[in-house]
Design a protein around this nucleic acid. Structure first.
Length: 826
RNA sequence: GCCCGAGUGGCGGAAUUGGCAGACGCACAGGACUUAAAAUCCUGCGAGACUUAAAUCUCGUGCCGGUUCGACCCCGGCCUCGGGCACCA
């Protein structure tokens, strides 16, 4: 036995093994076609400088999975890196006068060493940082691929502007009308910006949610709602004055005969022509101005009163040639559908309220079957099903059928037809910031927009920069960067100075990990197709829409470009819950932050990991408890003492047959094997690490009891202790490794095969069954295992309690479940 | 408003297929060891009734009802909390 110390000195042990694992390259992996691969990935962090408990949880979960899969014979890819571009670096630079690159890189160094102190099985040789040129070169290259395939385009549009961050935001980054980062109310600005055409993939992003059964239903529902597919029809009205077509989108074409007005969004370009030179012109302009001054929060709130104004113009309904007035109103969104809406007050809540307010006519065109609607009596819109009336040739058919028939008819007469609309908008990727990947585009006076040739990549970020957020990219003020020559004609040209949204960088990092050092390609096809998909992805649910949807989009696009074979990046997704303290999220402002560094210093990484895995199942929120940590620390010490107390004995266990075991010996062996089964199932099938750990604790308790015995089967104890150490390995890797070594074993515990349980050892000779009378537990009795129903009933009926219960009564029914219970109904 | 989740002892949680509710841990209490304390080891620990005690009984998984021999689990209706979306035509 190698120096087995009496006390568990975690600090010594953890340092020792971390160094050893690193020197030996224990966690380095390469492609190996003889082994089945497994790609285990945790969301890479933003290098804020310090690890927080959320990271500890995320990476502890991932490490259990990675180690478990390795021990089960898989070739496991388990990489880590840094989502290293982004605003905080610029803010820190302004505040502390440190260049963003320097600040970020030193944060990375600090966080890397914190991560390494956790002893996670990363292949550090595959580390990537999105802010380094050898990475963002390929982000730029991928931008060009999207550009050449028509998926990256520039357009002027009303975009979300965060005045505090001084940059634009993607639609997804606006939360309740505020900036997702800082909460500031966003404004609308008309700017020329770059977009990725994610809407081209709207339908596939929706459909292929079915191809990822390993994702939580909740996340898929969130994505589904975000994509917001809506089936309906386009109906083309015609402006009476200009004869211009005015299409609307509606999900209720069956109510088209009930249209009594038309509403345009204030931004709708047709408004100007309609009111030009009329008596309504000034009033309408004033109204539009007023609406546009409202913040997005106010404007999109359901609380906000619906307001509108008549334009003085009319449109013709293509189905009944009726002339209806055109209004402009604050509740119509220019970005959705066609920016114009038909008003059917009788059958739409919102239209009803609007019509009542402005005294617009209400025409009933859907009649419920068992009552008769009367306009005068209506207090609400009727939005349920019914039969179509006042609808010309469609009278008498059900409105459900009408939806289809009217749409088809519209197509026939050339005034629209069936349409599908999505809520999803294209992804705005331009950011007016310095610390991001430059967009590889050049503007030439002669040639216009010119993509940078691939050989010229990367377009490097200049590193010596003085800047303040001004609302335009700081790169605008760096002449060396700004001025260039046109790659096409050689003339003077100007670089694009906006940088890319950091979500672009994180939309493909999992591909780079498969081939991180490649300086010829973003990733080699062989590597990427060997490792992809990610088998298990683990991270916070806050990325349910943004990151996870963008990454899916990238994968599909890259697959269409022939760069990858798969169309979904993440086969299985685990969304872990938050780490709470005193019932709320840890935050500096609440002063309830527990620092991982301090916990690791005080108890060691193994205890920290064990606690965070034990305190709750991974998907649920976890309440931090200092006493709970203490408990896990005690448990490891308890294991240590157990092994120590057997000491030399385990070296010479003697040979005792396992076939002849009886009594407590047999029970101990059964405990060992049921524990293997429980731990294996809990990790593999349910990711319930909390119950896996409690099973291990029960094994330890069992061993303590067995130790009280006078006569012990030491070979059995050896099996139990070895199993215990191996089962602990994924949870407390340093601890297990040390005990493995000091119990006289060669090689790393982490390279062992995961223990298999012996089915036969699981079988108990005796089982306790329950006697119920009328479904209530009345007694418990031990019987031999595997008794038949009849035998079980016989035993049960012979029991005193049963006799007493049936005395003088008729037995109505006896239900017996072998090895479980007998229920006597009287 | 709509769409998801969740609700179990003093606390975190367990009960995997409808079959012993409360595994495991924390906290607490008692005992052993110790001059003493800490640490450790052992025992107890949902509420209530009765009892010297053992035992026994009743109630108990947010609330109300249902299905079933049997419900934390399935069904219907509510309440509370958390999350997502929110004038999407």
């Amino acid at each position: 036995m190698k120096r087995l110390k009496e006390r568990y000195c975690f600090d010594e042990i953890e340092k020792k093994w971390q160094d050893k694992w690193a020197t030996e390259g224990l966690y380095r992996v390469k492609e190996d076609l003889d082994k089945e691969k497994y790609y285990c990935l945790e969301m890479f962090p933003y290098p804020s400088g310090n690890l927080h408990m959320g990271h500890v949880r995320n990476y502890s979960i991932g490490d259990v999975v990675a180690r478990f899969k390795t021990m089960n014979g898989f070739n496991v890819l388990h990489p880590m890196g840094w989502d290293a571009f982004g605003l905080p670096a610029e803010n820190a630079a302004i505040k502390n006068k440190i260049p963003p690159a320097e600040w970020t890189l030193s944060n990375i160094d600090n966080m890397r060493s914190q991560l390494q102190s956790m002893g996670i099985s990363y292949d550090w040789e595959r580390e990537v940082a999105t802010c380094l040129p050898d990475y963002y070169k390929w982000t730029q290259w991928l931008f060009l691929q999207l550009y050449h395939n028509g998926l990256a385009y520039k357009k002027k549009s009303h975009v979300n502007w965060c005045p505090s961050c001084a940059t634009v935001l993607a639609n997804e980054q606006v939360v309740e009308g505020g900036c997702e980062r800082c909460g500031t109310a966003v404004d609308k600005k008309a700017l020329e910006q770059w977009f990725f055409k994610i809407t081209d993939y709207a339908q596939e992003l929706l459909d292929s949610l079915q191809d990822i059964p390993g994702w939580p239903e909740k996340v898929k529902i969130m994505q589904k709602n975000w994509i917001g597919r809506s089936e309906g029809a386009e109906i083309v009205f015609t402006a009476q004055k200009t004869q211009e077509k005015m299409p609307v989108f509606t999900t209720r074409p069956d109510t088209v005969y009930g249209v009594t007005y038309m509403v345009l969004a204030p931004e709708h370009p047709m408004v100007e022509e309609l009111i030009a030179g009329t008596e309504y012109e000034n009033a309408v302009w004033e109204f539009i101005k007023k609406v546009q001054q409202m913040s997005d929060i106010d404007r999109t709130s359901t609380e906000t009163e619906k307001e509108g104004i008549f334009t003085g113009a009319y449109v013709i309904n293509p189905l009944n040639q009726e002339k209806v007035p055109i209004w402009v109103a604050n509740y119509v969104l220019y970005e959705y559908g066609t920016g114009a809406v038909m008003g059917v007050p009788a059958h739409d809540e919102r239209d009803f309220a609007f019509a009542k307010k402005y005294d617009l006519p209400i025409h009933i065109v859907i009649q419920p079957e068992n009552e008769e609607l009367k306009v005068e009596k209506m207090t609400d819109a009727y939005t349920e099903e019914g039969l179509m009336i006042n609808s010309g040739p469609f009278d008498g058919i059900s409105n459900k059928e009408g939806i289809r028939k009217v749409a088809d008819y519209l197509a026939e007469i050339g005034s629209g037809g069936p349409r599908i609309t999505y809520r999803l908008r294209d992804w705005l990727i331009s950011r007016q910031r310095y610390w991001g990947a430059p967009i590889p585009i050049v503007y030439c006076e002669k040639c216009g927009v010119v993509p940078v040739p691939e050989e010229e990549l990367p377009i490097r970020l200049p590193l010596d920069v003085e800047f303040q957020p001004t609302g335009e990219s700081p790169l605008n003020h760096i002449p060396d960067f700004l001025h260039t020559t046109c790659p096409r004609c050689g003339g003077a040209a100007r670089r694009e100075t906006d940088t890319m949204d950091t979500f672009v960088c994180s939309s493909w990092y999992f591909l780079r990990y498969t081939d991180p050092k490649n300086d010829k390609e973003a990733f080699g096809k062989g590597s990427v197709n060997y490792w992809m998909n990610v088998d298990q992805y683990i991270g916070g649910v806050e990325h349910a829409i943004l990151h996870l949807m963008y990454a899916r989009f990238f994968m599909k696009a890259l697959s269409d470009f022939g760069l990858v074979d798969k169309r979904e990046p993440f086969q299985n997704l685990l969304t872990q819950g938050m780490v709470l303290k005193d019932g709320t999220k840890m935050s500096k402002s609440k002063g309830n932050v527990v620092s991982p560094e301090e916990i690791i210093k005080k108890y060691g990484a193994d205890t920290a990991r064990l606690f965070i895995l034990f305190a709750a199942p991974p998907e649920r929120d976890l309440e931090w408890s200092d006493q709970g940590v203490e408990g896990c620390y005690r448990f490891l010490n308890r294991v240590w003492r157990l092994v120590y107390s057997y000491g030399e004995e385990l070296k010479n266990p003697g040979q005792e047959g396992k076939e002849t075991l009886a009594g407590e010996d047999k029970e101990l062996r059964r405990l060992v094997h049921t524990t293997i089964k429980r731990v294996t199932d809990d990790i593999e099938q349910r990711f319930n690490f909390n119950t896996a750990i409690s099973a291990i604790m029960e094994l330890v308790n069992g061993l303590y009891h067995y130790r009280e015995k006078e006569e012990q089967n030491i070979s059995l104890v050896k099996e139990a202790v070895e199993t215990l150490i191996v089962l602990l390995a994924p949870f407390a890797p340093h601890f297990a490794e040390e005990l493995w070594e000091v119990t006289d074993h060669q090689g790393s515990v982490h390279c062992l095969s995961w223990p298999q349980y012996d089915e036969e050892a699981l079988v108990a000779d005796e089982v306790e069954i329950v006697l119920q009378i009328n479904g209530k537990v009345r007694d418990r009795v031990k019987v031999p295992a595997n008794l038949s129903r009849q035998e079980l009933e016989k035993v049960a009926l012979s029991l005193e309690k049963a006799q007493a219960a049936v005395a003088g009564k008729k037995i109505k029914k006896v239900i017996s479940v072998p090895d479980k219970l007998v229920n006597i109904v009287v």
